[in-house]
Design a protein around this nucleic acid. Structure first.
Lengths: 349, 349
DNA sequence: TTGAAAGCGATACCAT
DNA sequence: ATGGTATCGCTTTCAA
């Protein structure tokens, strides 16, 4: 065995260094690392030892350049909220098993940055993308779409695999829960107007009211944008109604917290004076005051499935056109039967 | 001007395609994109037009391979909590201005994954690292340390630039706030035992008690690990003491929420029965019930400064050995004067 | 089972 | 101001 001298390295060792150290060709080293079965076990062992000795790490740029694959997928998120971070964690878990890494692209809801994120595939940094939004320049076909899997939101204008959650049914269940508690005046604070998930949650809310024979009053449906602030604003308006709601179903947890906060400011208690339900079941939901009744969105699974589908796609396998994941209502303490006074008073017409 | 034909591309255009389209050399195209001042403005414009036409994006792998720089820095985080995500956002902001992208490395507190993250530099995917922890194989010098800037936590065994926050003073201020309110039995729930920031917060707490002539009782200092659960556990123990504390200073917001939750379960109100203060000032702190009094940690700045220092270092500039950022106590509603009964009762011995 | 060599797509040096 | 070309570190035929 060749004596291995540890050379004083400034920059890191290359495949050539390893090959020279061993007196073999670089092909052999490359194979030892990528297709070990092609080598005599002994050769392979020697290479691995030298790799260890020299602390060699293959240069991913060179590898990617040559092979045409970056070995990475990119998750594009509009913000760094816990919601998307759990999707990230799920995607990472699945990708890791398949030998891919996951890059995080933060678009900050800025169209230019969103485009820059999508460009990462053309730039070779990633092989495919998971996203909840598509820049219009890509959706329109002006730029060729990278291998793409959508989460939560359907890609406009193009047919792209979608992993989403059954928001409609979930929202319906949440609203039914409120109805079952005895509420008759139930408001809804909507999510971001542009989000399909928001529209689906509204739809589920409507359906539940319809089926219970409760006509949804237009003023019960309040716009919002998934932010705490919008939840607060909505509550302030809703409580000004002649017949204020006795329960509010919010399109996400953030707005639910905003709602609860605003109600406290108004001197109202949750759930004694008014019930609040959210969507997402973020980490703190179980520990807030009161613990939040909320619709659990399986974010981790969403990320997992999206990564799995994308990798299947990248590897030429067929992928599902649409995957629908179930939600689950988690009843905690922010919802309760309406106060007797409210219950007695009939819903307006 | 050469007629530009939009070729049907399967894969994306390369620098050669652009050069051929224009009848110029690839050097010219390269220069148009990287050192425009070396070109005649007219030539440059032509190139840019063709780039636009062909939808050309430079291959980052090729560029990085040739130039020896990835144009990216890596932020290694132990978890995807909002705390680190804001550091990420800050780092991104600063890095972006300098033309760097920021990669997120999620170590999940797993030593192997942490090493894999640090290996990214040797692999060429990143030029340098920002981290709050260093794998021992790197800290010990067994593997050469990549260009590195620490956040929050000092690198053991090696001298590495550190951007941190003045936890000690901050914790002291927070504790003084509690003392000023009239509390005499003030407990502290510690953060992760291995974290220096946790030790510094404890130190600040101690100093404040000392200066007020309040001897810190050992049983007031309760271990924790920055998790909600540990905050709950700590409270359950603390409230079993013969003289339970009237205020608790928690080493982060999560534990403060856990503490409040556990107190509610015990039928105690915050702040009427007991005051709770946290550290971090996470997004929800202002909206929780009650809004949380907490020590604001400038996470965004932490990220910004770390990125700035790292990029300076990468570009051969001198960097500060240690940067200390101030904290700020945000007094909200989870702290108040102790109930008369408690105040009357003297602190034990 | 192993080696030689072509080339992935850029950059940057050396010419002109 | 622009072009030619070696080269970065690796993967992958093709030969031996």
């Amino acid at each position: 065995m060749a004596k291995i001298s540890v050379k004083a390295r400034t920059s890191s060792a290359t495949i050539t260094d390893v090959a020279r150290e061993l007196g073999v060709s670089i092909s052999t080293v490359s194979r030892a690392l990528t297709r070990p079965q092609l080598l005599r076990p002994e050769t392979r062992a020697r290479v691995l030892a030298a790799v260890e000795q020299l602390n060699y790490r293959p240069n991913l740029l060179a590898r990617g350049l040559k092979s045409g694959r970056a070995g990475a997928i990119l998750l594009v998120v509009p913000n760094l909220s816990p919601f998307f971070m759990e999707i990230f964690a799920g995607a990472e878990e699945a990708a890791h098993e398949a030998g891919f890494s996951v890059l995080l692209g933060h678009s900050a809801e800025d169209p230019a940055r969103e485009i820059a994120c999508f460009d990462q595939v053309a730039s070779g940094r990633a092989d495919g993308i998971i996203s909840a939004a598509v820049p219009s320049i890509y959706a329109s076909g002006k730029r060729p779409l990278p291998p793409l899997v959508m989460v939560m939101e359907r890609c406009p204008e193009r047919t792209v695999p979608l992993i989403r959650v059954d928001d409609d049914t979930g929202a319906m269940r949440a609203t039914e829960h409120l109805i079952g508690l005895g509420h008759r005046r139930i408001a809804h604070i909507c999510g971001n107007k542009k989000a399909q998930s928001s529209a689906r949650r509204l739809e589920g809310y409507r359906r539940a009211l319809d089926q219970a024979g409760l006509r949804a009053q237009p003023e019960w449906i309040h716009p919002g944008d998934y932010s705490v602030q919008s939840g607060m604003d909505a509550v302030r308006r809703l409580m000004l109604l002649k017949h204020p709601p006795t329960a509010i179903f919010c399109a996400n947890d953030e707005m639910a917290y905003g709602a609860i906060h605003a109600l406290h400011l108004l001197g109202l208690r949750v759930p004694q004076d008014i019930s609040i339900a959210g969507c997402d079941d973020q980490n703190m939901a179980a520990y807030s005051s009161p613990p939040l009744t909320t619709l659990h969105i399986p974010r981790h699974d969403l990320g997992r499935r999206a990564a799995l589908e994308l990798i299947d796609k990248l590897q030429g396998r067929d992928v599902a056109h649409e995957v629908l994941l179930p939600t689950r209502l988690v009843v905690r303490e922010s919802t309760a039967a309406p106060a007797a006074a409210s219950r007695a008073r009939p819903a307006p017409r």
